[in-house]
Design a protein around this nucleic acid. Structure first.
Length: 633
RNA sequence: GGGGCUGUAGCUCAGCCGGAUAGAGCGACGGUUUCCUAAACCGUAGGUCGUGGGUUCGAGUCCCGCCAGCCCCGCCA
């Protein structure tokens, strides 16, 4: 296979877009054969039609900007170039079947508008497709049956809390963003391995075990002798002693060596600590509905010597001040000396870079001694960017990454308080994730009860708790995901729980409104004795749209497949959030201005079909964000 | 000292391979409810895209300099 092109960024209505790009390409070659020949020789891309979504609705569905770029090399007026292209398109049946006659606008843009019947056909096909037009990777276009999942998995490494510590705000973004990305990739048909690279190995265990042996030895031999809160306090004390007391430091280092060498007493203590933390983590994951597989740093312990041996064999390893390092290319530190990645400390111990290298090596290596992955994604804070850049470079130079392998750090910014500083409690401590989720749910609960009282509604306790929990957790997740992850994120309960704007409650309410129509629709259908299954509205009936708000909704709905493909490629969940928010807005306008149940029968069936597709799209999209929806709220 | 990220409306933020008059939400101001949940919808005001150069038919977007904030920089993760 010969492909030199980078993966093309996705655009609305992928299949239609691909067809149009192809027709435009053909039109360009026919209109300017000499340019096409020149391009083939120079292998540049002057004949790229530059097809993009229209920047404004009045420009139609798509715009082709390629004529502008072509004008100069051809020494022609841009509009003349555009005219020549349009003439070719007009003679192309495959094009005219899809689009109305193109318009040339401005300096030489070609505006394309899809034929209404093409849009209707797309809507009909999505109504019949549980995947809503999103193709499975590896599936051939024409009616392939249940393609086997690719053998080469995508690994998403996220969450990664530390044993003997509680999960705090710092783990929020990795957990939520990682879960979403894993979800999108899995939906596209990738075999996704969700790995929790927990910090269960290394110096901190030496510290903690040494300290516990002295102050609370029962914690090392008896399950649950101390609770996690105590462990956190012990950890803090151990850390302090480690920083202040040289003798303690030495003992702690020796303890790490014993642990890593497999000393039974140390292993037993370590195991107990891990089990206890693990149960606490699981409470959070269950609550957030997040599944992931634990594979901590300790997993790679047996593979560490091989990392060093490999680097030795490839001649990358250099001993410097007693430490074994790989010096980085293109990254210089003080006095122009290259920066090292230390893979073995002067005392013979391994550190986190070694573990990260072992993980990369294992993940790309073929089964059974590896995962055989072709794409590995790390969701960690942006502060680790240079660490990963260094480690990735070493892995690449060591030859552990296959040619088609993708190794990506997905960085995200800090969680800040409303004062713009790092989020802390009033006492100045790190905010526990549990407390943060509790507060979100409590606030949603209080708000719901106030609203019910105002409206004189009566709901039972189970309903209130369910809605408050769903809304509260959805708000936390959505607020995080809806922001471009690369920037710092200002955490605000008031903003994320707001009922209007780009928030979870607004989106959930749109779903609820549609659910309301569906319920009423079922009643109306029953009363009118329409004879059709109310759950099947829109099925075979001809779809007819007349109102501008209907067409706006149709056009927006059809962009779903492209957004999913875009998130898969760019790993930016906020693109999906923006799409879903805009879809909700478009739907609310439609809901406001176009009657559904009171419309005449044929219009009603078509509008019910649009409602169903909207609900399905919102539910699927929110589901990929890790957010369950409600029928009533 | 070196490197990275960020800087867009009063506030919080979008802005895709460089495309047409830079967008949204909140807040402010003004409207809309005999009708499917008004947790909604419509409208108005609000911008030197940090700054100075450069490339281009075209720059918030690409390149260089500068300013400001945050983060990282040898045996912690």
């Amino acid at each position: 296979m010969v492909t030199c092109a980078a993966p093309r960024p996705p655009e609305p209505m992928l299949s239609v877009l691909n067809t149009l790009t192809e027709r435009l390409r053909v039109a360009l070659e026919k209109a300017f054969p000499e340019a096409a020949a020149a391009e083939a020789r120079a292998s540049d891309a002057t004949l790229d039609p530059q097809l993009a979504p229209a920047s404004k609705p009045e420009f139609g569905d798509f715009q082709a900007n390629g004529a502008l770029a072509l004008a100069r090399p051809l020494r022609q007026q841009p509009r003349a170039v555009a005219t020549a292209i349009v003439e070719q398109l007009a003679a192309d049946p495959a094009f005219t079947a899809l689009c109305l006659p193109p318009q040339i606008a401005g300096p030489g843009f070609i505006n394309l508008t899809l034929r209404p019947e093409a849009l209707v056909a797309e809507v009909a096909s999505r109504l019949a497709d549980s995947r809503l037009g999103v193709p499975l990777v590896g599936a051939s276009a024409a009616g392939s049956v249940a393609p086997s999942p690719p053998a080469e998995p995508v690994i998403v490494d996220f969450s990664s809390p530390n044993i003997a510590k509680e999960m705090h705000v710092g783990h929020l973004r990795s957990t939520i963003i990682g879960d979403c990305l894993a979800g999108v990739l899995a939906f596209r048909g990738h075999a996704v391995l969700r790995l929790n690279h927990v910090g269960d190995w290394g110096t901190q265990f030496g510290m903690l075990i040494t300290h516990l042996k002295q102050v609370a030895p029962e914690a090392l031999t008896t399950a649950d002798a101390v609770d996690l809160g105590d462990l956190v306090a012990f950890y803090r004390q151990a850390k302090q002693r480690f920083d202040e007391d040289e003798a303690f430091q030495t003992t702690a280092r020796e303890e790490v060596v014993k642990l890593q060498a497999g000393d039974p007493v140390s292993r037993r203590a370590w195991q107990l600590l891990c089990d206890q933390s693990r149960r606490e983590f699981q409470l959070i994951y269950d609550r957030l509905g997040i599944e992931l597989q634990e594979r901590g740093e300790s997993f790679y312990n047996p593979y560490l010597p091989a990392v060093v041996a490999d680097l030795e064999a490839t001649g990358l390893l250099v001993t410097d001040e007693g430490a074994r390092c790989v010096f980085l290319e293109g990254v210089s530190g003080k006095e122009g000396k290259p920066l090292p990645v230390i893979v073995q400390k002067s005392d013979g111990g391994f550190n986190y870079a070694t573990t990260d290298l072992a993980a990369i090596r294992y993940r790309f290596a073929a089964a059974p001694a590896g995962d055989g992955a072709r794409r590995v994604i790390y969701v960690t804070d942006a502060g680790q960017a240079s660490h990963f850049a260094g480690v990735f470079q070493v892995a690449r130079r060591a030859g552990w990454i296959p040619d088609d392998g993708r190794l990506e750090h997905v960085p995200f910014g800090l969680v800040q308080g409303e004062d713009g500083k790092k989020l802390k409690t009033r006492a100045g401590d790190t905010v526990r994730l549990k407390d943060l989720l509790d507060e979100a749910v409590d606030r949603a609960d209080a708000d719901l009860r106030r609203r019910l009282a105002e409206e004189g509604r009566h709901e039972d306790e189970a309903f209130i708790r369910h809605v408050a929990t769903t809304v509260g957790l959805a708000a936390v997740k959505y607020a995080d995901l809806s922001q471009n992850r690369t920037t710092n994120y200002q955490f605000s309960f008031d903003r994320m729980l707001a009922l209007q704007g780009n928030t979870a409650p607004y989106l959930l309410y749109a779903v609820v409104r549609i659910a309301g129509i569906a319920r009423k629709g079922a009643e109306v259908a029953g009363a009118d004795a329409l004879g059709s299954d109310p759950g099947d509205y829109g099925g075979d009936a001809a779809l007819v749209f007349s109102e501008s708000q209907e067409w706006a909704l149709v056009r927006h709905l059809l962009g779903f497949d492209a957004v999913i493909a875009e998130v898969e490629e760019e790993l930016l969940p906020n693109r999906l959030c923006t799409y879903l928010f805009e879809l909700s807005q478009v739907f609310n306008r439609f809901y406001d201005q176009v009657p559904v149940l009171k419309a005449p029968p044929q219009a009603r069936a078509s509008r019910l079909a649009l409602c169903r597709l909207t609900a399905d799209t919102l539910k699927l999209g929110l589901g990929l964000l890790g957010i369950p929806t409600l029928e009533r709220m």
